[in-house]
Design a binder for these strands. Structure first.
Lengths: 213, 213
DNA sequence: ACCTGAACACCGTTCAAGT
DNA sequence: ACCTGAACACCGTTCAAGT
């Protein structure tokens, strides 16, 4: 089972999202296509397993710094998650598609919840906030990756932003004055800076919901 | 071209995300598969066209109420967008996959930007905020739809939440106390209430960046 | 438990050709 | 401009069978 998931992930890393297929995994293992069904019930399960595998990587990498203000700790957590996902761009789409219901997803969620409860959020709000943060991380990564071919490694951020800027220069300023006037910023929508700006807005909003200690 | 996109959308509505294929569209129009390439260069272009088509529906539905506080207007705008997307669940995934670079996407973005600039955000922040809001809307909808089969109409929210609650009841409280303790809330992650709670957090964070009038 | 051959009902896309 | 036949190189999945 492990080798099957590993093969699937390396196919995604090298060839992007389309590179994953049951037959390709079989080929990669030197085996006939139907052999895969000995290990995995169907393709959807294989995708869920890949998601779980990547979450395991994330779990290892997310060392919870117990120092600093809670907003900093949450921001670090989110940034690490993003880094891990961007390191496997071919698999990023799967996170929007395959339900994150495995053990590793639970473990990650529990940790994030802990961080937010420690911050002083009521448990109900902590739960909502955890999901809000995941939507931000997963959504940002998915949209960022969607503009690439999904192979690893991603082109450097500066290049991707520059390409967007070139494309945005064709926006007619007469018809769309605001969009044209902020093309520089819109080009950088797929950047770490945008991600963290958004995260900052989000954390400010959460701060207002922290109950006085 | 129009009939091709209409056929694609109705396939998605009736059969979910997997129902869209070049061959199925051809079949739906009573024509051979390769005929489709007279109208559209490839499958990716077809998907972009579907996205544009749905954005056109959204554009029609997003009537900008000029009354009320800016945060209310932005929230209404986001909620309408969400409604339109949830009304075509089979196409929701396409929004995380196909770049939103068409005319209708631009028009929608320009309107949102206008709303945010009127609110008093500096143009650069308005641009970042517009994207942040889109990530929230698109991300929330995609994750919400991912737990269904993507056919139209979606099961009622109450049913989807109840199904999640049943699944979450299996979370071991010993290992994941926080998750288990907030299962009720986590079940409702795929609800309008969660969407608007998150939107509220976001708007509060943005309020702090509005420059004094 | 692990693997196979053979088959079924599909894909996206290209090319030369016809009206 | 619109459509076709024929073909190529693929898919996911099932089933009966073999070790």
């Amino acid at each position: 089972v492990e080798r099957v998931v590993a093969a699937a992930l390396s196919l995604l890393d090298e060839g992007g999202p389309q590179a994953l297929s049951v037959r390709a995994v079989a080929g990669h293992l030197g085996v006939r296509p139907n052999t895969i069904y000995t290990y995995v019930p169907d393709r959807a399960a294989l995708e869920r397993a890949v998601v779980e595998r990547i979450l395991a990587l994330a779990d290892a990498q997310v060392l919870e710094s117990r120092t600093g203000p809670w907003s900093r700790r949450v921001a670090d957590y989110a940034a690490r998650l993003r880094d891990v996902l961007l390191d496997h761009p071919g698999a990023a789409t799967l996170f929007m598609t395959a339900p994150m219901d495995g053990r590793n997803a639970l473990a990650l969620g529990e940790r994030l919840l802990g961080l937010l409860v420690d911050a002083g959020l009521p448990p109900e709000d902590a739960s909502r906030a955890a999901y809000l943060l995941m939507v931000h991380v997963l959504g940002s990564v998915a949209l960022e990756v969607a503009e690439t071919d999904g192979t690893r490694p991603l082109p450097p951020e500066a290049l991707r932003v520059a390409a967007r800027y070139a494309a945005l220069s064709h926006v007619p300023a007469g018809e769309y004055p605001l969009s044209a006037g902020t093309a520089q910023v819109a080009a950088a929508w797929v950047s770490r800076e945008q991600f963290e700006w958004g995260l900052g807005v989000l954390l400010d909003g959460l701060a207002a919901r922290v109950r006085p200690a």
